[in-house]
Structures are given as C-alpha cells and as structure tokens.
Design a protein around this nucleic acid. Structure first.
Lengths: 349, 349
DNA sequence: TTGAAAGCGCTAACAT
DNA sequence: ATGTTAGCGCTTTCAA
C-alpha cells in the first residue's frame, strides 16, 4: 500500500512557515514574497520529508492537467510509431508534461472517439499522429484545444502539421546517386495509396533534370520485398548497356527485394548497380548484406517538434491556431544514411 | 480557448436535484439512493449540457488518478514496442484507465528516474516493459505501488512478470518442422546476449528428442540478416546428403539471411530446405519471397495481460503482490504462423 | 513580508 | 429517499 505522502501542510509545519509560502517556494514564485531564510527552511523541510507537490491537486486548482494526448492510428503495426512516441514523450517530459496515449488500432479507424476520451480526461493539448504520411479530415474535437497533426495534414490546412520533407528527400537521395556518377537511374515501387510516393518521385525527377539528365523511368510495384524483387529482376537481367546504373526504391523493403534480385541476376552491389532505399526501417536497412543506403524519415524529430509545438500553444494560451495566424505546415528534413548499397560503378562493369 | 465546461452543480440546478445525486447517477451508485425519476431528469440534464464529470477533481477526492504508467527501455528502436503499447493502452482504456508513457531511450538506460517521475504524478500502477526479453533488478519504486513486469522478470521473482513462453515456442516450431518430415534440423544464430535464445534452443532439442531424433546441431551467429546469410551459406553449400533438411533460425532477420543464402546456393525453399524464423517481425516476415514461416511473439497480448493485471491489483487495493501470495510469472503462448518457407521436402531433391 | 481564506469540482459520510 | 457538509491538496488573492 502506498505510504501516505506528506502534504504542503506537513512541510509548512516542519519549517514553521505557512502553506502558501511552501507553495510559492515549490513553484519558484517565492522571491520577493518569502524571506530567503524561510525559503531555505522550507526547502530543507521538503527534502527531509521527501515532499513533492500533488500534481492532481495543483491541476484542479490551475485548471490544467499538464498532460498531452497522443492519438495514433495504428501504433501496433508500424515499425516507425515507436520513434514518434518516444520523441514526443521525451520532449513533453522535458517541458513538464506527461504523455498519454490512445491507439485506434488500425489505419482506417476513426480516431475521434479517442480524441473525445482524452478531452474528457482534460488533457491540455493533443497530437494526432499517423503511421504513414496521409491527408485526412481533422476531427472536430481537435479544434477545441491546442493540437497539431504529426505525419499527416488536412486539406485545406486548418491545423499545424509536422511532416517529413519527402520532396526534398527524394531530391537529395537522387543527388547522392548522381554525385556517384550514375546517369541511368530507375525508380522502383510504391502504389498510389501513399501520399509520400508522388513527392519522392517529384524530387527524383527534379534532381535528374537539375543535373541535365532526361527524366528517369518509373516502374510501379507494391511496397514489399517481393514487389521489389519482382520489379527489379527483369531490369537487372537486361544487358549491361540497357540496365540501370542505379535504382531508387520506394522504400527499404522494396530495396531489400531489389538487392535480392541483383544477387539473383549475378550483379554486384554496388559494383554493377547501386541501390537506394527510403525510410531507414530499423532492423531491416542496417541488417541486409550489404547495409542499405537510405533516406531516414525523421520520425523521432516529428514527435519532438509536435510535442514542443503543442506545449507552446498551451502555454501561449490560445486554441490550436492563434486567431489571425495561419496554420503552418512544418517540413522536417530526411537524413541520408550511406551504407553499402551505393557507390561508384566499377570501371570493369 | 476551451469553452467553460458545465459542472455537476450546473446539472443539479437544471435537473432540480442535488449535487450529490448527480454524482451518484454519474457513478452508477444511485440505485436505492435516488428516486428513479430524479435519476432520469439528471441524466437528461447531463446530456443536454454535454456534461462529463471532471476526472481530475474526482481523482483528487478519491485519491486515484485512474492512470497507469508504462515505462519502456527503448520504444524508439524496436519494431515490437508498438504492439505492447497498443495492447496495454487498449486494455487499460477498456477498464477506464489512461496510459501514460515514459521511454528511457535505450536498452541499458536506467528506468528508475522515469518510475519516480510517474509516481510523482500519482499514477495508480506501473508496467515496466522491455523490448527484448531480459532479467533485471526491479527498481525499488515499483514495489511502492501495484506493478508488473512485461517481457522481463527479476531474479528471484519479486514481482509479477508477463513473458512469452519461449521454451514452448521453440518446441512447437520444431514440432512443425518434424511433422513435415524433416529429420536433420540445424539451429542458426543468436548470441548469448539475449535471454530468449537458450530457452528456444532447449525447446528445439526437447522436441527433437521427443521425436526420437538425435540432438540438433547449433550454429552460433548474430541476430541480423547478414549473420544468417554468413552462417547458412556453408551449410547449404554442402552436398545433398550432408546438408540440413531444415534450419530453425534464432529470429526472422537471421531467417531472411538464410533465405538469401539458400537462393545463392541454388537451393529451392522449401523444396530443398525449409526455413523457420522467430518473432513475426512486421514488415519483414510477411515481406520476404516467399513469406517466412515463424513463431509470433505475443507482444500485444503481453501488453494486454500486463495492463489487466495491474488494474486488478489496483482495484484489489493491495501492493504489487498481495501479502502472502507469491509473485507469479505468466508465460503466454507464441503462435505458429505458417507462410511459405516451410514445407515437405520434395522427392526429387 | 507573511498568513488566512476562498475556492478548483468532486465524492462520501452524515443529517434530515 | 434526499439534501447538506466536509474535505481531497493545492494556488492565489487579499488582509494584516
């Protein structure tokens, strides 16, 4: 049974001061209101009793819970959700907020029920985070308290949205390949179901064009290892003068399949062909032979930035978007992670 | 700005009843204390005002927060953490509890700081969850309120621990291979750094022995794709009469490497050799060609069971372990997921 | 500079 | 069967 915890009253008694003095000392509002030596006695008494203020009582008084809610669509099935959660909870904790979570359990699931539940619990702010980048209609409940969208946005933009800069990621990944001397670069994979794909492809074509190269070929396929394998095998089986120098894969799983296809076709990676992934999926990208070069999605940072922004809003005191200020989409940079699947083409190849 | 929410007082006034009657109606303790028609009026008034009780105020009065804390060691870098979080938060929510999270950020990190922080915030109970199965020294703070360990345990057992039954998983996976007619089965992978490995291997040997087969060969290696590849290649390159019928891999990444090695060695899977994984790592096991047969770790269920047990303890009112009752280790079954990498050996092979 | 007092919104014991 | 009252532990205003 939890032993009874000391209250501010106990501390006041031990220090020979008043309850309010204790409160001020604990909240840092004592200077100029409480004599320094009284402050010191209070601090000592608090330490002696191992006193910490009761946040629920304080919250009741202040009408704040010092909690932010994090609603996810499918934390369970994503290898990325953990990074966002951990980034957000870290940042929230650094600013004195607790993070409470609610997971809808699936990508299509309605999150508004969870949002209402968290509102009922009086969270001070909300983050709605999706596992893969998407456009959605923001549930009305979000508008009733400070909130931001993470890895998703609504159209037209009515709430702050924190997202990866997929366009720039696509561009910089391609620039990496071009800088290695590759000229014939083919895009592989990805269906039309994910918002990120067209952005990455636009960046891809943009980089090629900026380098004075013709548009790259785009081979559609799914998002899984076998899709990458199936799509890449015929490309790699073509003659040396007809096959690509490099492939830019829609994600790391597709890249893993392409890697497998290269091996099957008897091509050396990166000697004969370079392979670029996307996502930096943990326990996959670093676990292939050789490790995948890839663009890392900044999930942890997305969580961090989203939490900080919500807290800013809470402490700024306004609703999600301050009256007069337009909601903002914040694009965070993806990070190039160079491992073993990209390199210059070998002369002999 | 959040519009001012109605209070029990407002509802009482509108319904022409007393505050306490409202309280009882909202808490389901009204029957026998409040006249049925008054109850009905109160319910209607509450609905009209869109009233929901203020959980912080209730918590202050009841000395309960209706929150459980979930402390993880490295949610960010594990593909499995999400499943535990989502199982736990789902179960907690079903029982009226909010889940608050704190992530230590790394496998070696000290969690006691986070446990103290959550205790300070007056969570009613705690779950300490690790990303991979391990033995640890339970931080003292856990003993001060209802708590359980998830995916880990202490030695000697002083707290309830919810874990996968790795021994049985190893046994049943092996039984699957044996039932397909395989006789020469080799274990591949896994270092001594993970508690799960010896258990899985014990199950493996136990199943072989129960089938009247000699002990299986154990080839140590790491836990990643390249480790599996490196370890499997020489095995698969041996002559048909010297190579294994099947390999049981320490985890799915090792199995993915073994699959690649089989392809490199020119072996058909499962025609020439069957490959068994472990973990059911999302976006890997189902994404290889063919999909990996594997034992799924019951992470979601671990989260669910852990949360339910904590809530049981909270509502039972005792400390982590009721006086007199021994702490309990609960082993949850792993689930065999048959995909494409296991099957009978083809006659011609 | 200090301390007393009034709640925050709710629940539970008590009086009617 | 109903309403009244006394806090839960804290913050903050106001009077001394």
């Amino acid at each position: 049974m939890p032993p009874r915890r000391p209250t501010a009253q106990d501390v006041a008694k031990l220090a020979g001061a008043s309850r309010s003095a204790v409160s001020m000392v604990m909240n840092g509002t004592a200077d100029g209101n409480v004599a320094p030596e009284t402050q010191e006695r209070i601090r000592r008494a608090a330490a002696a009793l191992d006193y910490t203020p009761h946040p629920i009582a304080a919250g009741l008084r202040r009408q704040r819970s010092e909690m932010i809610g994090l609603v996810t669509d499918e934390a369970a099935s994503s290898p990325f959700a953990g990074r966002m959660l951990s980034g957000a909870s870290q940042a929230a904790s650094d600013r004195g907020y607790l993070t409470v979570i609610a997971d809808a359990g699936g990508p299509g699931e309605d999150t508004s029920h969870y949002i209402e539940e968290l509102r009922r619990r009086r969270v001070d702010g909300l983050i709605l985070a999706t596992t893969s980048l998407r456009t959605l209609r923001a549930p009305e409940g979000l508008r009733l308290l400070p909130s931001v969208l993470a890895n998703c946005h609504d159209e037209p933009l009515s709430l702050d949205a924190i997202m990866p800069d997929e366009y720039r990621g696509g561009r910089e990944a391609t620039e990496h390949l071009v800088s290695l001397g590759h000229r014939r670069i083919t895009w592989i994979g990805g269906g039309d179901d994910v918002d990120a794909r067209p952005l990455r492809i636009r960046g891809f074509q943009q980089a090629l064009s900026a380098a004075g190269l013709p548009p790259g070929e785009v081979v559609p396929a799914g998002w899984d290892i076998n899709d990458g394998f199936t799509a890449a095998l015929p490309l790699f089986s073509a003659g040396p003068d007809r096959r690509p120098d490099a492939v830019f894969c829609a994600n790391d799983r597709v890249a893993a399949g392409a890697l497998l296809a290269a091996r099957t076709a008897g091509l050396a990676v990166p000697g004969d062909v370079s392979i670029m992934g996307y996502d930096d999926q943990r326990h996959l990208a670093e676990a292939t032979v050789p490790g995948l070069t890839t663009m890392a999605l900044p999930h942890e940072e997305i969580g961090r930035v989203a939490a900080n922004r919500v807290v800013d809003r809470i402490e700024g005191g306004g609703p999600s978007v301050p009256a007069g200020a337009a909601p903002q989409a914040v694009l965070l940079q993806c990070r190039l992670v160079v491992r073993g699947t990209t390199g210059p083409r070998l002369p002999g190849a």
